[in-house]
Nucleic acid binder design. Sequence first.
DNA 1: GTGCCTATAGGAAACGTTCCTATCTCGCAA
DNA 2: TTGCGAGATAGGAACGTTTCCTATAGGCAC
Lengths: 143, 143
Amino acid sequence: MMIDRDLAFERIREAGLRLTPQRRAVIEELAGDRSHPLAEDVASRVAMRVPGVSLSTVYKILHELGDLGLVRELSLPGAMRFDPDTESHAHLVCPECSEIQDVPLDTATAEAISVAAEKATGADVAHMEITLYGTCAACGPRA
Amino acid sequence: MMIDRDLAFERIREAGLRLTPQRRAVIEELAGDRSHPLAEDVASRVAMRVPGVSLSTVYKILHELGDLGLVRELSLPGAMRFDPDTESHAHLVCPECSEIQDVPLDTATAEAISVAAEKATGADVAHMEITLYGTCAACGPRA
DNA sequence: GTGCCTATAGGAAACGTTCCTATCTCGCAA
DNA sequence: TTGCGAGATAGGAACGTTTCCTATAGGCAC
């Protein structure tokens, strides 16, 4: 499920944070974005609405949204990426073109892994990140 | 399965690479290591056997081992980590203490995810990385 | 309006990683 | 043994990402 603008605004307030123009812009730019942007991508888009916004502010807001569960922070090679889709799904990274694709992942499988991990370690799993590495269709098998 | 010293040496030679003291030391330090070390950890241990070894050399060797499939390179928050265990398994990262634990993952599940992803995207999946985030047993639920 | 608390901008700094180049080593041939 | 060439290494500079710090600005309650 994609992040919902108004739900996000509400969560921000519930957390006791102010709905500043910067927070509003980050949320609205992220909503509907399926490109797994870098912090800098988000910052430059936000800058078109809120000129002068600083990169450190955007980082701070992105982490806040991550903590609130409104955004997924992805640890991918090179840099962190941000995903407004918080539904359980995996990512495919192509080593050739570095493109990132969403990969559907059925909830049952995700749940099974999570439960098995909790059983094995005694931990309390909050969320998971599944990244697949492999040549994408566009970069072709070889032929 | 943990990296095997002699098998690794053989793979190095097969790849047309020289078995230098640095490569030998990296492999031997990594074999049997279950701590998911940082590149710097590996470098400082290697330095005890090969004084003066440089960090960039260690990085280069670690990537070579990754390419040869002898080591897994993990994209975890903060920094890359290296895992000599190339068997299919997941990792649990505790946000409190940053400890990393191995989590067993049955091959069938991993295979199912991989195949489903290939079907969905048309990609050729080479390997996958599953990271679970959650409070570990030591850091406790709250009580 | 006044005072308080939070948020922001801006830049410096830290960190991990990669890149570059001169030097060195190794394996091999003569 | 000596010399040669390909490959490897040390060392450090450079790069990009992320965090940290501080002074300023802005909103809210009174």
